[in-house]
Design a binder for these strands. Structure first.
Lengths: 115, 115
DNA sequence: CAAACATATTGAAATGTATCAATGTAAGGA
DNA sequence: TCCTTACATTGATACATTTCAATATGTTTG
């Protein structure tokens, strides 16, 4: 039997674009939110802080905010992006990150409405 | 240096009662929400379904809902309870579970208000 | 083109997680 | 008292996650 784990996937996957967000999709979003370093990054992106490169927050800004190494930041941002919480766009040699407020709103609504 | 991991804790911990819910606490809540089986359990608890024992939903109801073994259910419920999302109370030989809507509301508000 | 910089990928170590079988514990009923 | 039932704990297995050092890739600039 061939599993996602065997394929090397499922250690970062979804990126489900505009799907209906079933249990799996919601769980994936919450997993992305389940790390303090990632929440710190999110809070920073939400704060309208001015990044070192002007024009947005780039990866190197997040290294100093979190105290984590560059590869680790890269990993976390990929995780947040795969959940749709963060939009990453390359401009020049920088990656600029921003929050997709729609996904936050959807996840928030899920929690406030589920009970 | 003595770490949480060495102590055997931190593989289920918080249960932070009435704390201010910092990044760590929020991350812990989202981690509890990050598993499809646990979301399924939450949806079931939110559905006002009638359990097999009357008077609420008990552990054995959740085995059939999820298809998971009894020890696994026990593990998941401890996880949800440690995040404060679920309240567990023993009555007779059953554990009755219910959602703490305040914690859901707090987590939902966190997401809708953070950006 | 070469150097410098921002980011991504790989590899590895340490730790955490999900799951079940087996076993323990406590409560109720025959 | 003994058996059954509901749940918890232990032990083991298979993965997943976090993190960094090392290295690769791609972009800008001298």
């Amino acid at each position: 039997m061939y599993t996602r784990a065997m394929s090397g996937l499922m250690q970062l996957e979804p990126t489900m674009s505009e799907a209906p967000l079933g249990l799996e999709g919601m769980a994936w979003i919450f997993k992305a939110l389940s790390d303090p370093a990632r929440l710190k990054i999110i809070m920073y992106l939400a704060s309208d802080a001015v990044g070192c490169c002007g024009d947005g927050i780039c990866g190197c800004d997040l290294e100093s905010v979190t105290g984590l190494s560059q590869p680790t930041i890269s990993h976390h941002m990929k995780c947040l992006a795969s959940a749709g919480l963060v939009v990453a766009q390359k401009r020049g040699k920088w990656m600029y990150y921003s929050l997709d407020t729609r996904v936050f709103a959807a996840a928030g609504a899920y929690l406030t409405q589920c009970c």
